[in-house]
Design a protein around this nucleic acid. Sequence first.
DNA 1: GCGGGACACAACCAATGGTTGTGCCGATAT
DNA 2: ATATCGGCACAACCATTGGTTGTGTCCCGC
Lengths: 311, 311
Amino acid sequence: MDLNAVRTFVSVADTGQFQEAAAELAVTQQAVSKRIAALERNLGVRLFTRTARGAELTIDGQAFLPHARELLRVAERAVASVHTGRRPLRVDIIASRGAASGLMRAFHRAHPEIDLDVVMLFDIETAVAAIRSGAIDASFRAVTMPGRPLPDDIESVRVLDEPLQLLTGPAHALAGARSVTVAQLAGHRIWMPGIVPGTEWAAYYDDLVAEFGLTIEATGPNFGSDALLDTVADTPALATFMGEQTRLVWPADHGLRRIPVTDPTPVYPHSLLWHRDNPHPALAALRAHLAATAAGHAAAGTWTPGWVMPR
Amino acid sequence: MDLNAVRTFVSVADTGQFQEAAAELAVTQQAVSKRIAALERNLGVRLFTRTARGAELTIDGQAFLPHARELLRVAERAVASVHTGRRPLRVDIIASRGAASGLMRAFHRAHPEIDLDVVMLFDIETAVAAIRSGAIDASFRAVTMPGRPLPDDIESVRVLDEPLQLLTGPAHALAGARSVTVAQLAGHRIWMPGIVPGTEWAAYYDDLVAEFGLTIEATGPNFGSDALLDTVADTPALATFMGEQTRLVWPADHGLRRIPVTDPTPVYPHSLLWHRDNPHPALAALRAHLAATAAGHAAAGTWTPGWVMPR
DNA sequence: GCGGGACACAACCAATGGTTGTGCCGATAT
DNA sequence: ATATCGGCACAACCATTGGTTGTGTCCCGC
């Protein structure tokens, strides 16, 4: 399947003639003939019936035509996705199943006409560099890292405070609790493999640990979310933290419990970051959308690094 | 843009290595390297960062990946659309904007998972031949042609009786009428260019003319629906027939009037035709859908060729 | 520092895809 | 009926592509 052949096919179908299509594509009539013949050979069906006045679509050709057009449309979009001028809005999120992903889905539902590309970068440092270089247009990250103020040319706005929940298997000591306090967590093993030192989310958990005297183990290789959930579900002594809005890929009946944490509730502060001078119109739309749909944050009884909201 | 290169790109992105991708695609590592290099050159961006342990996606590569996958999906569908085994349900309709098209849209809404291909054939004779040859799976046609019973291996079911309406410009003598009787139409010029003698729909209008003493002019070249509507809108002495459910592409303010016809109401009888032995599962779904949503037909006061329903 | 794994480059060759020239066929006009 | 013309297919030829093998270079880990 050659996209040039498909393009030629569509052109012939539109003009009804090999010759005109050839002129349109700036090749000879014979080249068009060859391309169509090759396409027909590849597909195993005849696409045109050759008449004295040109060519008209067979039944198979008619059926194929809309698919061919769609193919060209998608190809064009694919190319546009990496072209620097007028490309889709490119947004970095921290995880494909996290809260930021949900925000982007909602934005896409609200503005289906806006082309989006979602990528996942390593950490906020990489993201800021990508924003400054123009490689991405925006990033959902936590900007609470102490001692590392954002550069002047990067703007940010807090868009979502996501409460953390405790995730346990059915045999865990806290599995039956409707909610747990932070104080109760002291002494329990909380396991978060995959935490990478130096990232902004590692710093978040460092702060959490320091503030409330918790112990978070990051030992062991990170085999991915599936393996983590598998282990937590089967190990009574292990629990882990998870954002309230994180979508789990997990059979509903496997017995994993999501337990709210209180006194205070640790919340993960998602901010949107973008470059001061980025003129992409879809960026303005995204900011407007987030401003309009922003859930209240910094609520009473919550904690983020650096301060505790009074109840 | 070469689909082979895109396939290679996805393979490398999935495996994380040129070598594994090469094995998967049954080519050498060097070929994969060349393909990726060519793709990167075409797109003008770097897609992978080469590391000592393989290759990982750049930001541009991440953005491009979902588009690449979509491209391959669409290509696969395009090929399937003309492959004989397990292809999409292929249905013939009489016109892209007619009632049958509306039925197919409704079916698609009800069963978005079923792949459909819609084609437009010349007449019922062509359609029956296409059904018997397996080129199409079903056809919406009128089967009232006298003296031409369907072959034994073709089954059919009446799915929609579509009332005919009179279409006039604002200056036409009948433009103000809320409805007109068939008797009133005698003496008025009804213009239907594009009627092709020998087709089943030409036979329908022949019957209509013979039954009620109307005059239908089919003279003049058929420049398409746009030109027809244009002329009718501007010519006080001309009117035309149009199916009640036909979707017009016409500015709403142009003054065209759709006037119901009564005493009796001529209805165009759409039937679904298919081959007795066609095992396509989607065909059964289509038949079930049509049976479930069938509007009542053969109502009192309507006319179709061959009989008049008593009021 | 050394060995090994992984990608890139070079040289070579088959195959693709383009061009020009020509033949064939059907529709139309004489 | 025959000549003509418009339009597509086939043949021969050539430049370019895309594959292979062989080799080089770089990075990582021992």
